[in-house]
Write a protein that binds this DNA or RNA. Structure first.
Length: 422
RNA sequence: GGAGAGUUGGCAGAGCGGUAAUGCAGCGGAUUGCUAAUCCGUAGACCCUUUAUAGGGUCUCAAGAGUUCAAAUCUCUUACUCUCCGCCA
């Protein structure tokens, strides 16, 4: 969420961001609500001030055994007025707050301008596309061979879009999760968390999934809980309504979670196998940092995700999202795309974003600045490190051999106990 | 699911209709050869005035609603915490 003050002071920036994110929003109405609110506050506070003085007078009179009836009668009318005005004020406050929740974050100056995916900027590539002296199979064909995934039977359980991993497929999935968690903890200094997978409406609003993207979330109506679409939701809320210590920056957390997405509106896109799912596994990194350093840290966060892919020896590219492709809450975002030889395309496996104070404001996550001694909002960052389904696809397709076997990358062998699937 | 107790400032803890004691910690200041001790100040959100410094006001005792001239205090609803019982991987 942006503050009204920020919006008023950076109106051009906000308008541009609305335009690039294709959001239709009436700022003028918002401002007029705010003006009305200020007027109301002035009047009602004047009345309250009167009441507070009168109340002391009444108390004194009663103490001295004098008659206070006239004063009480007078205050009765004032109190009635205050009551009505307070209700009006609350209504307008709610209205303003609810409007603010629908304004997207503004983008950072370094974000490339553009409308669609095609306008994203290539930042760097690592490794090369592997060469095969045979036609590489897709992950689905490999799965058929080794019975790694069972989509057909999964349908009996949950309908389409929910993967069932079997045998070596299940073990490899577990190995990937364990490998990534260990890596971030041991090599990158994150604290490991294992969070709840259902979150409250309030927690889900902090990170920006609600209220705007309600239709993308699975919702448990009986308890008003939401199935998390990423571990970002519970993990970011670990410090909601807290004041963090400046000397402890950056706060670094990594967490595995299952992720649930309804993917409303994307039917028919990438429906093959593991490419787009309603439930998948992901290891996430979340950081709470000092505002002055958040953009430097974003770079290191991307590197942390890249380290995983380098350790696994997979070719990828890093892309800076353009203004039009940027998500609602992000000020800047890098995507990492893995090469999948069997699919013959790059697959997005990670998004690393700086949200600046957008989420911190919604979740009231602050710290006291030593330079000004004032409270300020922290910056939050998060990145996938990384999502497993497409990682699994790229891995299987990259490491397949001419004899039909699949090599296990060295770093995963301790977790798998074997070095080849055959 | 049932019964009971509780939720007050960073922490501890009083107040139970007249508008938040006190202690500890942190921070700032004073004093002081140094340290310690002592003393003073000390929150946040919002609104107004002001070029600024600064000043004034309103609100905040888990959240919301109600009673009242006046609510931390009384009533109702909700959330959370603890204890016991039941159920349960």
């Amino acid at each position: 969420m942006l503050s009204l003050k920020f919006i008023r002071e950076n109106i051009d920036k906000v308008k541009l961001s609305l335009q690039h994110k294709n959001v239709d929003f009436d700022l003028e109405t918002l401002f007029s609500h705010d003006d009305k609110r200020r007027d109301l506050i002035q009047v009602v506070e004047q009345l309250k001030s009167e009441r507070n003085t009168a109340t002391k007078v009444i108390a004194d009179k009663k103490k001295n055994g004098e008659d206070a009836t006239t004063a009480i009668e007078k205050m009765r009318a004032v109190s009635e007025k205050i009551k009505v005005m307070d209700q009006d004020l609350k209504q307008i406050d709610d209205q303003i707050f609810n409007n603010l929740l629908f304004i997207p974050n503004v983008y950072h100056d370094s974000v490339p301008i553009g409308q669609t995916e095609g306008d994203n900027a290539l930042v760097r590539e690592w490794g090369k596309k592997p060469q095969f002296n045979f036609t590489p199979l897709s992950h689905l064909e490999l799965s058929e061979k080794y019975n790694l995934f069972d989509f057909k039977r999964a349908t009996k359980m949950s309908g389409s879009g929910f993967p069932l991993y079997r045998g070596m497929g299940a073990k490899l999935e577990r190995a990937l999760i364990n490998f990534m968690l260990n890596f971030h903890v041991e090599k990158h200094g994150y604290e490991e968390l294992f969070p709840p997978f259902l979150t409250t409406r309030e927690a889900t609003t902090t990170t920006g999934q609600l209220p705007k993207f309600q239709e993308d979330m699975y919702h448990i109506s009986g308890d008003d809980l939401y199935c998390i679409s990423t571990a970002e939701v519970p993990v970011t809320n670990i410090h909601r309504d807290e004041q963090l210590e400046e000397e402890n920056f950056p706060y670094k957390y990594t967490a595995y979670s299952a992720c649930f997405r309804r993917e409303a509106g994307s039917y028919g896109k990438d429906t093959r196998g593991l490419l787009r799912l309603h439930q998948f596994n992901k290891v996430e990194m979340v950081q709470f940092v000092h505002p002055d350093t958040s953009y430097e840290i974003l770079e290191t966060l991307v590197n942390d995700a890249e380290d995983i892919l380098q350790a696994l020896g997979l070719h990828y590219k890093v892309v800076a999202l353009c203004t039009g492709d940027l998500s609602f809450s992000a000020a800047k975002c890098y995507d990492i795309e893995l090469w999948a030889p069997g699919e013959d395309k790059y697959l997005e496996v990670s998004s690393c974003s700086n949200f600046e104070s957008f989420q911190a404001r919604r979740g009231n996550i602050r710290f006291r600045r030593s330079d000004t001694n004032k409270l300020d909002f922290v910056h939050t960052l998060n990145g996938s490190g990384v999502a497993t389904p497409r990682l699994m696809v790229a891995l299987l397709e990259t490491y397949q051999k001419a004899d039909g076997s699949i090599e296990i990358p060295e770093v995963l062998v301790p977790f798998m106990g074997i070095d080849t699937i055959k």
